[in-house]
Amino acid sequence: MSYATTADGVRLYYETSGTGLPIVFVHEFGGDHRSWEPQMRYFARRYQCITFGARGYPPSDVPTDVERYGQAIAADDIAAVMDALKLERAHIVGLSMGGFATLHFGLRHAKRALSLTIAGAGYGAEKEHEEYFRGVSHEVARQFELQGAELFAKTYSLGASRVQFQNKDARGWQEFATWLGEHDAVGSANTMRGVQARRPSIYDLEGELGAMAVPSLVVVGDEDDHCLQPGIFLKKTIPACGLSVMPKTGHTLNLEEPAAFNALLAEFFAQVEAGQWKPRDPRAIPSQIMKTA
């Protein structure tokens, strides 16, 4: 088993496959390092693919102090995994919680990112729902502690943006739900309190995001309601950013629609590597409807 060690001494479990330019996959709250298997198998044919467990997700360490969890820490943990593998730069791909970590990696470690794929990132970002989201996050943490992961996974895995996965692919969804039930309750609770409930809204980062030059792709499902408007905001704010909305799709994008997701990433990586994923043409003025002179 391979581990990276962070600056504060936490060991992060990681796996690698393939050779070539590196891709680091960063999992969501409800997933773990296993959640990227369809991408690991597909992209390892021509890339070096890395998947790792966030702190709090065995076989990575599970710190018991909530202060050892946070949004900046999550972004820096990606860099720690890259350091362990002696990777100077990589494509960074994250979903949901991992999408936020990917976004913050771009803000904190821009020179180390070949590109950023920010998928399903939006929960808690909408200003009108900010306090509600924080309260729900604390309640989710409490239920993990009260019920344990195996029992509470039966509730959490059936959220409003998860049932699309269940309806399309019952076997795949069941595997997701089973793995969720194997998570560490302390790690899940601390992640909810330390990362999810405390992270800043992306709307409060507009200035920083507007100055971030990393080629970026935002991906959302059209039935992942609380990610749609934040996704449009990111598209409009990050200079070299594309937006893809996947139809009839919920939150667990990479597992729910693996072929479409892989195809999106493959095209994005090819454009970036060719130097063709550029900032928006300044002639494309958002306020203009038709040119008359």
Rank of each mutant, 00 (worst) to 15 (best):
T249C: 15
M290K: 14
V272C: 06
F144Y: 15
G53P: 01
G18K: 10
I118C: 04
S96C: 14
M40W: 06
I238E: 11
M290P: 00
F105M: 12
D204Q: 12
A141T: 01
L146Y: 13
T102P: 04
E223Y: 13
D204S: 15
F144E: 09
A153Q: 05
N190H: 01
Y13M: 03
Q196H: 11
D65R: 00
C241P: 08
I232D: 06
A240D: 00
S96G: 14
A79D: 10
A211W: 04
A197I: 01
G242H: 06
F152A: 01
G181R: 11
I23Q: 10
E139G: 04
R11N: 14
D169Y: 11
H129M: 14
D281R: 03
V218L: 06
P230H: 07
L243C: 03
H27R: 08
P22K: 03
N167T: 08
G135Q: 12
R193H: 01
A160K: 15
V220Q: 13
E126C: 12
T102W: 02
M82A: 12
S157P: 09
E273C: 02
G194N: 04
A110K: 06
F43A: 03
A121W: 12
V93Y: 10
I202K: 01
N254D: 07
A160V: 13
P279E: 08
I285D: 15
G207I: 11
Y123K: 11
E208S: 14
P63E: 06
Y57A: 01
E128Q: 14
K168W: 01
F25I: 07
A197K: 01
K248H: 15
S161T: 15
I78E: 05
P59I: 07
L85D: 10
G159Q: 05
Q39G: 05
E182F: 08
E131A: 11
P279L: 09
Y42H: 15
L151C: 05
I232A: 14
T191M: 08
R55P: 00
G20M: 11
R34L: 09
E130A: 15
A80T: 10
V220G: 09
S60V: 07
P239I: 03
H33T: 04
S115W: 02
Y47W: 10
S137R: 09
A75H: 07
G53R: 01
I78H: 02
G20A: 12
M97C: 06
R45L: 14
L114R: 15
M97I: 01
K168D: 11
R171W: 02
G124P: 02
G98T: 05
D8A: 00
R41K: 13
K111A: 14
F144V: 08
V186S: 00
R198H: 07
T5M: 06
K291F: 11
